[in-house]
Design a protein around this nucleic acid. Sequence first.
DNA 1: ATATTATGTGCGAATATCGCACGGATTGCA
DNA 2: TGCAATCCGTGCGATATTCGCACATAATAT
Lengths: 253, 253
Amino acid sequence: MINRDIAATLAKGLDALACFEQRGGTLTMPELGELSGFDRATTRRLCLTLEHCGYLERHGKGYRLAPRVLSLAGGYLHQIEAGRKVQPLLRHAAETLDLEVALATRDRMQAVYVDRAAPASARVTLGLSVGSTLPLLHTAVGRMLLARSAPETVQQALEQANNRPHTEASQMDPDALRAAIQTARDQGYCLARNEFETGAAGVAVPVGALDDTPFVLGVTASVNRFDDSTTLDRVLDVLRHTAISVGRISADA
Amino acid sequence: MINRDIAATLAKGLDALACFEQRGGTLTMPELGELSGFDRATTRRLCLTLEHCGYLERHGKGYRLAPRVLSLAGGYLHQIEAGRKVQPLLRHAAETLDLEVALATRDRMQAVYVDRAAPASARVTLGLSVGSTLPLLHTAVGRMLLARSAPETVQQALEQANNRPHTEASQMDPDALRAAIQTARDQGYCLARNEFETGAAGVAVPVGALDDTPFVLGVTASVNRFDDSTTLDRVLDVLRHTAISVGRISADA
DNA sequence: ATATTATGTGCGAATATCGCACGGATTGCA
DNA sequence: TGCAATCCGTGCGATATTCGCACATAATAT
């Protein structure tokens, strides 16, 4: 390792963990070795250590993520007071709008749900929960996050190797994407239709307090839900109102 | 390190992470050094590495958990299909019972919420969300989990150094606790009142599929809610029904 | 102004890690 | 059943990494 400030073994272990995150499910040691590129013996020691520390558990022949990672996430959620303060606000917004509402932030080159609430009437759920990740380029929350991120981040997002269309409607032109992000920044909200899931649309607004890391609030619905500008205005109104309240929480953290 | 199968540096780094989980919030390097017992230089390198890998982020002078841990938890939740399959079942149960319903499992010596749902009418929320941890000894879910765990685990739970009463009603006698756990095992459910939060009571039932790690389903309500045996029976009925459905999911994973 | 505490850096000694090579166990296939 | 192909555990020497001190600087409190 060139940099003496980075503990190589720790970094490797964390990379190994990340392999389980991407390919959710069980991985055998040979599979993990292949994915991570580590020697078989190294892979073995990393797995044993991660198991010892509770982050992995054996499942049949292989390993998979253990509940330990949930507790860790719980620590994060606790620190931003997700359970006690954010959740009620999201619930209220969800009931008021009769839409699924989520608080999201950015984890590297993905959007990640921090908390969410669905109205009681929710018929169809997208299956997104706390910790679910979404692409930055083709979702409303993702673009709104990029709109609040540093230019380098936007650049990186556009240049990513694994950028691929999710639907036929997914915008793939870098200039158009950059424009969409700029529009989101200018008008203070982002609307995306059909680009991630055909038939679905999302709206996102920024959350007040810019706690170094940007947060956004988003809703998801069937694609025609936001066609009417009166409806859109109402959604934006409630979202922005909620965003201010949410922002007030993380401000004094 | 005595054991050549455990990568010491990785273990240290994970221990450092765990420090942030317990003392949710921001930790400065000296504080972390104190907590973890590592040398200042070591602490520094671990922090830099964890930051480099995205698990920690700077906040003012110190470090705190980064959204990265959420994505990791997302991987776990995805693997048990929490979002798509479990959530709807919990929602339905919550609405039917008009109670907060949670799926929990055990992470070392704590119960941890895997998923939860609250009815639309929820007035008071306990502030527990995905990843929230609860004590094993003084909650219904905790005792039900212990009832399904190995005897050594129960023993460890009883012998823990940091066992302390959470309310005046918290049962602290090891024999009585052991009896309560045995009762839970025998009757297939667990009821606990006032032992964790004064004024609150919980009911828990085991989840069908014993996927090596035990899962339980629990509800929480104000303490008098389960006094009436008819009500309790109805709650148990719905919970057990839900438990079977949930068990069917993780069975084929 | 001075004491105290936090932070950054360099380096030699100590040692943990790497990766190979070997043997045994398990699995799949003919 | 026998054979082939993996998979898994272990030992060990060479190497690279980590440790922890010591020094220097910066920030903060007294």
